[in-house]
C-alpha cells in the first residue's frame, strides 16, 4: 500500500479523477460519441489503484500540457 501511494504522488503521474454518471454523460454528449469511442484505460492500471472504479467508468486525467498548461483527457475503464 505504501508503495502504491508513492506512485500516485510522483510528479510525472497526472491526477486521475473518476467522473460521476452525469459528468460522464455530459462528456459523451459534448463529443457526440458512445463510451466505446473514448480512449481506454485498463482497470488494473497502477494509477487507478487508489480509486474505486468499475468497468465503463470514465476517468478524467488532468495532464500538464506544453501548449496550454493543463489539459483534460478522458479514458474509459475496460477490463485488463
Amino acid at each position: 500500500m505504501e508503495e502504491k501511494q508513492t506512485i500516485i504522488k510522483h510528479v510525472l503521474v497526472p491526477q486521475h479523477v473518476k467522473l460521476s454518471e452525469e459528468q460522464k454523460q455530459e462528456v459523451l454528449k459534448k463529443y457526440n460519441i458512445s463510451s466505446k469511442q473514448l480512449p481506454r484505460i485498463k482497470n488494473d492500471d497502477p494509477a487507478l489503484k487508489m480509486i474505486e472504479v468499475k468497468i465503463g467508468d470514465v476517468i478524467m486525467i488532468k495532464r500538464k500540457s506544453p501548449t496550454i498548461g493543463e489539459s483534460e483527457y478522458y479514458r474509459v475503464v475496460v477490463n485488463g
Partner: peptide
Amino acid sequence: YDNTVRDANHNIVQFKYGDDGL
C-alpha cells in the same frame, strides 16, 4: 470539424488537436 483528433472509426485520439486546437 469539432477539433477532436479521431481515427477511421471515429474513436477519439485527442480531445483537442494539440490541446489548443491551433
